[in-house]
Amino acid sequence: MNFEHSVVDNILKLKLSGDLIGEDNGIDIIEIINNHINNNVKLCVVDISGLRYINSSGIGVLITILTKFRNKGGELCLLNPSESVKKLLIITKLNAIFTIEENEENAIEVLNNSLK
């Protein structure tokens, strides 16, 4: 799996691609999340449009990220999941826990409104 990250307007943007199966990258992602949360970043957009596959460990990584942001009074939004990932989120009922948006503009609006 590959990932990129940046912070724009105090929103962490994380882009994941490949297969999210909780390998070593999961630890690297969590470390980046912790660093940004410690620097008072409370909002995160995770672009998962490039994920081909996700397993239970990968779901665990996403839940860990969500939990870390919510524990600090923040929020996370998943962006543009593929059909297979969207089906997995529905089957596991995680679509009721995660905020999922189809485009970045909507995701940022939802995140900014979550802090009001």
Rank of each mutant, 00 (worst) to 15 (best):
Arg70Phe: 04
Ile91Phe: 14
Leu78Gly: 00
Ile54Gly: 05
Ile54Pro: 06
Glu75Gly: 02
Pro81Gly: 02
Asp9Thr: 03
Val61Gly: 03
Asn38Ala: 13
Cys77Lys: 03
Ile54Tyr: 04
Asn40Phe: 11
Asn2Glu: 15
Asn80Val: 02
Asn55Pro: 12
Met1Trp: 01
Asn10Cys: 00
Ser56Ile: 09
Lys42Glu: 06
Ser17Glu: 12
Leu78His: 06
Glu75Arg: 00
Leu14Phe: 11
Asn80Leu: 07
Leu76Lys: 02
Leu16Phe: 14
Ser49Thr: 01
Thr99His: 07
Val110Leu: 08
Gly26Cys: 06
Ser56Arg: 01
Asn39Thr: 08
Asp24Met: 07
Phe98Cys: 08
Asn103Ile: 10
Ile32Leu: 10
Gly22Ser: 10
Ser82Asn: 11
Gly26Thr: 03
Thr67Phe: 07
Asp47Arg: 03
Ile48Ser: 07
Leu51Tyr: 08
Glu75Pro: 09
Ile33Glu: 05
Asn71Ser: 07
Leu66Pro: 10
Asn2Lys: 13
Val8Thr: 13
Gly26Leu: 05
Leu76Gly: 00
Asn55Cys: 05
Leu78Gln: 01
Cys77Gly: 02
Ile54Glu: 05
Glu102Pro: 11
Asn55Gly: 03
Asp24Ser: 13
Leu12Arg: 01
Phe98Met: 01
Asn95His: 14
Glu83Gln: 12
Leu88Tyr: 06
Asn112Met: 10
Ile97Glu: 09
Leu88Arg: 00
Asn10His: 07
Leu115Ser: 06
Asn2Pro: 04
Lys15Thr: 15
Asp28Ala: 10
Gly58Tyr: 11
Leu78Asn: 03
Lys72Ile: 00
Asp24Glu: 14
Val41Ala: 03
Lys13Glu: 15
Thr92Lys: 01
Asp28Gly: 01
Asp19Met: 10
Glu23Asn: 14
Glu109Gly: 12
Ser84Val: 10
Lys42Leu: 11
Val61Pro: 08
Leu20Thr: 02
Val45Met: 02
Thr99Leu: 07
Leu51Phe: 04
Leu16Asp: 01
Ile30Val: 13
Val110Trp: 11
Asn10Pro: 09
Glu23Pro: 01
Asn38Phe: 12
Leu66Trp: 13
Asp47Tyr: 06
Ala96Cys: 10
Leu115His: 00
Ile65Gln: 00
Lys86Phe: 15
Leu66Met: 13
Ile59Met: 09
Ile32Ser: 03
Asn112Phe: 08
Leu111Met: 05
Val61Arg: 00
Asn25Thr: 14
Ile63Gly: 00
Asn80Met: 04
Asp19Cys: 08
